[in-house]
Nucleic acid binder design. Structure first.
Lengths: 209, 209
DNA sequence: CAGATAGCTTACCACTGCTAACCCAGAACG
DNA sequence: CGTTCTGGGTTAGCAGTGGTAAGCTATCTG
């Protein structure tokens, strides 16, 4: 595979290298398990190019991985959005979003970490929405529907969305970080528990057995 | 302050340097905001010593910061444990734990990140419990009391503890990471929302207006 | 065919975690 | 008192990192 050298692209076809770098970066990311463990030189070698060539397309190393992971998440989230447009109880749809979110974290832990588990400084004006903003908006949208359909207590949708997002994000984070010092249930069981708790609470309700 | 040189310790007093290194590491950690941004050389310079001297006391750089942060968390958690022994409804105590946990994340974000926001591989047998294990155990303990006092629905304490821990951890993580792409409420408001949702759920209950 | 330029490479910098080898003041021992 | 031993460091350096400045060259354009 990985050629040690590479034919120079023709004029106007520089984007081919860009695409190849993204692919190589993603492959190395999943192999190594973290962006820190993948060096710019390693990416360059994988595509058969020297490292400064990378900096023609991105200003910083981190930008490469952010782009890689955003692409993967956008693909995922459009799939989920399509599945969630359906009918039925709104809270069921919300549960589906939570399950899908956990599935993404489980299948793409490195991408999840890059997108959701590092500081996000203020996004410049006019920049495309971050993965976090998209995910959050999904939750807000469903919650507003739940309010409209009266499936939800009267709570502020944005604050409540933050609480729910935090809960699911926390569960996904525990899975991604493989916290072996804590008895974390299987991902599927954990997300069901989070859904159950978030929807019905833990308090002994007046009308619940 | 930071002396460029330093009197050599007497025999048997090597631990003085060890303590000074821990203090310098913590100070630099809070100044820089992340452990990655603090180099071993910087710590060494701060205490007036050369960098290999550090490796007399720790095998790896990360071990220094883990120790620094564990000390801080142990101090915090014993304070909370004492406050939580009191009487009153169990769920109120649980809420207090959640608030305290968020307060720790808010006041010591760098420490929180080191302790709870990176992969934790299996702890060697006989090692002291990690901060995560201690925090989790706090939640389990309170939950078992809640079950005993019938303040809680009949749920598996460990699975439920994981869900609650995930929720609080997610909220703290959002705060620590300063997710500026998401409308995260103030820490205090966020933790109240998480508590409210976790205790009572969001679903329109049969007996709630 | 001449010049411009996209698409790279060579060479390098300052810095990182970490190690091997050495030095040396003072405690312990004869 | 003199010698040896050793805890508590230092000097020097390795392999690797992200990133940059400057130059080269194949291709396109006038």
């Amino acid at each position: 595979m990985s050629p040690t050298t590479r034919a120079r692209a023709r004029k106007g076809e520089g984007d081919q290298l860009r695409r190849d770098i993204l692919a190589a970066a993603e492959e190395l990311l999943t192999v190594e398990g973290s962006a820190d463990a993948v060096s710019v030189r390693a990416i360059a070698e994988q595509v058969g190019v020297t490292s400064p060539a990378i900096y023609m397309h991105w200003k910083h190393k981190d930008d490469i991985f952010t782009e890689v992971c955003s692409i993967r998440f956008a693909e995922f989230s459009s799939r989920v959005m399509a599945n969630v447009q359906g009918e039925g109880p709104v809270l069921d749809r919300l549960a589906e979003v939570a399950r899908a979110y956990m599935a993404f974290a489980e299948e793409h832990p490195e991408q999840y970490r890059v997108l959701f588990m590092q500081p996000v400084s203020a996004v410049p004006d006019g920049a495309p929405p971050t993965a976090g903003a998209m995910a959050f908006q999904m939750v807000v949208g469903v919650l507003e529907a739940a309010v409209a359909e009266q499936e939800m207590r009267e709570l502020d949708p944005v604050t409540t969305a933050a609480a729910l997002f935090a809960a699911i994000h926390g569960a996904a984070s525990l899975v991604v970080d493989r916290h072996e010092d804590i008895p974390v249930p299987e991902p599927a069981a954990l997300v069901e528990a989070v859904i159950d708790v978030s929807f019905h609470g833990i308090a002994a309700g007046p009308a619940k057995p």
